[in-house]
Amino acid sequence: MVLPLQKKIDAEILFMHIIITPIVWAKLTPEQENLFLDKKSEINAVKANLKDLVERAQAMGISANKLLVYSNGAERINKYVESEKVDMVVMGSHGTYGFKEHMLGSNTYSMLRRTNVPVIVIKEGFEHSSIDTLVIATNFREETGKSFAQIENFTELLKAELKVLYVNTPDHFVETNDILKIGQSFLDEFAAYNHEINIVDAFREERGIIQFAKKTQADAVAVITFGKSDLLQYFSPSVTENLIAMIDIPVISLRKNTF
């Protein structure tokens, strides 16, 4: 999915791989590398894979580059995202069971909690090559307006349909007329186009998003997350992580006021 997506939005792509090494690999001589033949073989395989990815991208007319990072296990991808001035990150998740950090992968887990750039998480085995319908779940709070506009622009680049969703839960219950009034005011200020406001009642935000995504046969879901210090966490990082674990389609996570 990544290459067709990048081609559609005409973006440069950086293929990055972080590999755990027992020592500072970059300082080893060729002779010393031979003392760790298994790791050397793994590194060679990663290099070959990165080279293949770059060549496949370039064959599609996509500007591409690669970056292999040797790590002792403490390295975090957000450091390189900042240094390389990356605008968006695409990452994978491993499955649906186990602890969140294991299910997402430590780097994906870290990115969702720390980065200020949008993160697209794609479930292992997802095979669709395009996003034609994108659902954005929002609570229409003013501080999410810039992030909403970013998703709207992204949807326009994809030539996709954007569906606006409000999940009404018992903990944050709002009457329908009030939701529509608040939502329309939000869209008048931050949206470039007219959007229908869809409302789903559910016990939890994740359940409502999943139900609506299935009903509309959405290809991806976007959520705007709030930091831990926010007293009214409607979409906290943990909600996003739960959603990724429970849904099969890609999830786009954005931090509020990051653009």
Rank of each mutant, 00 (worst) to 15 (best):
S110V: 06
S110W: 13
S110Y: 15
S110L: 11
M111E: 12
M111T: 14
M111F: 02
M111D: 04
M111S: 13
M111P: 00
M111Q: 10
L112C: 12
L112G: 14
R113E: 13
R113F: 07
R114E: 14
R114M: 12
R114I: 11
N116T: 13
N116S: 13
N116I: 11
N116V: 08
V117W: 04
V117E: 06
P118E: 11
P118A: 12
P118S: 13
P118G: 11
V119Y: 05
V119P: 03
V119N: 10
V119A: 06
I120K: 00
I120V: 14
V121M: 11
I122W: 00
I122Q: 06
K123L: 09
K123F: 05
E124D: 14
E124G: 09
G125D: 07
G125V: 00
G125H: 08
F126G: 01
F126Y: 15
E127M: 09
E127R: 10
E127C: 05
E127F: 06
H128Y: 08
S130Y: 09
I131V: 14
I131M: 07
D132C: 01
D132K: 03
T133R: 06
T133M: 01
L134G: 08
L134W: 07
L134S: 05
L134F: 05
V135I: 14
V135A: 05
V135S: 04
I136G: 06
I136T: 10
I136M: 04
I136C: 07
A137R: 05
A137T: 13
T138M: 07
T138N: 08
T138W: 03
N139G: 13
N139K: 12
N139R: 05
R141L: 05
R141I: 02
E143Y: 09
E143K: 10
E143W: 02
T144L: 00
T144K: 02
T144A: 03
T144I: 01
G145P: 00
K146N: 12
K146M: 08
K146C: 05
S147I: 01
S147V: 05
S147Y: 02
S147E: 08
S147A: 14
S147P: 07
A149E: 12
A149T: 10
Q150R: 14
Q150N: 13
Q150H: 15
Q150F: 15
I151K: 01
I151E: 04
I151A: 09
I151C: 08
I151M: 11
I151D: 04
I151Q: 03
E152T: 09
E152V: 10
E152C: 09
E152W: 00
N153K: 13
N153I: 01
N153P: 02
F154I: 06
F154N: 09
F154M: 11
T155P: 04
T155N: 05
T155H: 02
T155A: 12
